[in-house]
């Protein structure tokens, strides 16, 4: 495995940026190349937090990313979709349809459990009901990625 895509959702919850940077750091340590797709605001939050690109070097506009995946111009080994609302489930389902990547759903926010229950296809679920504190979600990521050994 050599590359991974993060598909960021609405950046309203501060957990998203923190977890994206944490996850990017861990994957970089595992020699996995990370590309992040998101809205302009979601990407700006990452770039301001990581101005020298120590964790995330490659970013792409969300719509362009979907277009390139749908047209089979690009694909990834791993894909992490950040889900905190119904739109996030729609993006996750879309990735399940248009990509062959191993899919991870990072589900958070106040509706995390309800959203996770809507996932009826194969993917790794990382779920915790939090909007502000990233630590519980980080622990679940460590477990799934086997970074807690």
């Amino acid at each position: 495995m050599s590359n991974a895509l993060f598909l960021l959702g609405c950046p309203e919850s501060p957990v998203q940026t923190a977890i994206a940077l944490y996850l990017a750091n861990g994957l970089k340590r595992d020699s996995i190349d990370v590309t992040v797709a998101g809205t302009r605001s979601a990407i700006a939050l990452l770039k301001v937090s990581d101005p020298e690109g120590n964790y995330v070097r490659k970013t792409v506009d969300l719509d362009s990313c979907i277009e390139n995946l749908a047209e089979k111009k690009v694909d990834f080994d791993l894909c992490f979709v950040f889900v905190r609302n119904d739109a996030g489930i729609s993006y996750l389902s879309t990735l399940s349809s248009i990509s062959d990547a191993k899919l991870f759903a990072i589900v958070f926010g106040s509706d995390a459990d309800a959203l996770a229950s809507m996932i009826d296809f194969e993917c790794e679920r990382i779920v915790y009901k939090t909007s502000h504190n990233p630590v519980p979600l980080k622990k679940r990521i460590d477990r799934v990625m086997k970074w807690d050994a």
């Binding site: 609405c10 950046p11 809205t39 739109a87 996030g88 389902s93 879309t94």
Partner: peptide
């Protein structure tokens, strides 16, 4: 010029010469 986002199957309606379809935005829902 868009690639539809959604949970399959995505239903698209036709009414006369108009199409009715879902359009998803990350922060605003569908």
């Amino acid at each position: 010029d868009v690639y539809l986002i959604g949970v399959p199957p995505i239903s698209i309606g036709v009414d006369g010469d108009e199409v009715i379809f879902p359009y998803t935005k990350p922060c605003y829902g569908t």
